[in-house]
Simulated scan of single mutants.
Amino acid sequence: MMSNKMKLTVGVGIVLVSLFAFAISISAHGYVNEPKSRALLCAEGANYSCGSVIYEPQSLEAPGNFPEGGPADGRIASADIFHELDEQTSDRWAKVPITSGPFTFEWSLTAAHATDKWDYYITKENWNPNEPLKRSDFEKFCTVDDNGERPPFTVNHDCDIPERTGYHVILAYWEVADTANAFYNVIDVNFDGDYVEPGNPGDPEEPNPGEPPVWKENQVYLGGDRVTYDGSVYEAKWWTRNEIPGEANVWEFIRNVATSNQENSQSSFDSPLVFFNF
């Protein structure tokens, strides 16, 4: 029979192996930096009003098996996480110059992962740039199979980009091999033209000028992020998702929106202090 000491050793070993496997499964992240993805341009400040993706452009992870699976139409750009990325108009996002023909895409991986394949899609010639991105907008033009191999931290793929003119969106898709997930990067490109600055996105959900945006379900928030919910302003203490302000301990009540204008009309010394979590 196994002694208690042996049982403890085996149990600890199982826990450590499980934790190691879990750490590997959640550590795979990456983004396209050539041409620069929508999320990367957010992190670099070229795109604005992007939400929390500015802190982690490598984390656009969602269920794989695209296009049969994956995020719903209208949520593809955000991987159903950073929903600001799903906003879609002809001038919402910065556009990087590109030409049709041979092109080398480059990914930067913050953590490599055993990989099934890499797919590249581009919007069809008759797509509508003023509607949310959907599956039927895209056609695949390049596939690279990795057959379960673990890639290096810099990955290059040689593809032939189809003929297009003007503004289009490229979807770069990384399907990992040992989980059911994949990574989604959209790239806003301007064919045979120059770099194009983004337009003014605005924020129709902002309750009052100067107030934080409305809390969104499934949105990732980091420590220090502020939101408006049910007439009040809350600040996240740490990373959170789907935890409702006013109900979850991760959110700290700051003030009521209804009284904020009155407070702001008083001396600036009465303004609430902003605390940052590091």
Score class of each variant (00 low, 15 high):
Pro207Arg: 00
Gly148Trp: 04
Thr104Ala: 11
Val274Ile: 13
Phe141Ser: 01
Asp80Ile: 00
Ala114His: 13
Arg226Gly: 06
Gly202Leu: 02
Gly166Asp: 09
Lys117Ile: 09
Lys7Asp: 05
Asp146Tyr: 14
Asp145Glu: 15
Pro207Ile: 01
Gly101His: 07
Thr240Met: 00
Gln262His: 09
Asn147Trp: 07
Glu206Tyr: 03
Ser265Tyr: 06
Phe191Leu: 13
Tyr120Val: 07
Gly69Arg: 05
Ser268Met: 10
Asn208Thr: 15
Arg135Ser: 08
Glu106Lys: 15
Ala94Thr: 09
Gly166Arg: 08
Leu273Asn: 11
Pro97Gly: 06
Ile26Phe: 03
Trp107Gln: 09
Trp174Lys: 08
Asn200Gln: 12
Ile244Val: 15
Glu149Met: 11
Asp188Glu: 15
Asp178Lys: 14
Ser49Tyr: 05
Gly166Leu: 04
Phe22Ala: 12
Ile26Trp: 02
Tyr234Pro: 01
Leu133Ser: 03
Leu273Phe: 10
Thr228Ser: 09
His168Asn: 14
Phe278Leu: 11
Pro35Glu: 12
Gly224Thr: 00
Pro198Cys: 02
Asn256Lys: 15
Leu133Trp: 06
Pro204Ser: 08
Glu56Arg: 09
Met2Ser: 11
Lys5His: 10
Pro97Glu: 05
Phe82Thr: 04
Gln266Phe: 12
Ser59Phe: 06
Pro151Glu: 08
Cys42Thr: 15
Ala258Tyr: 09
Pro272Cys: 10
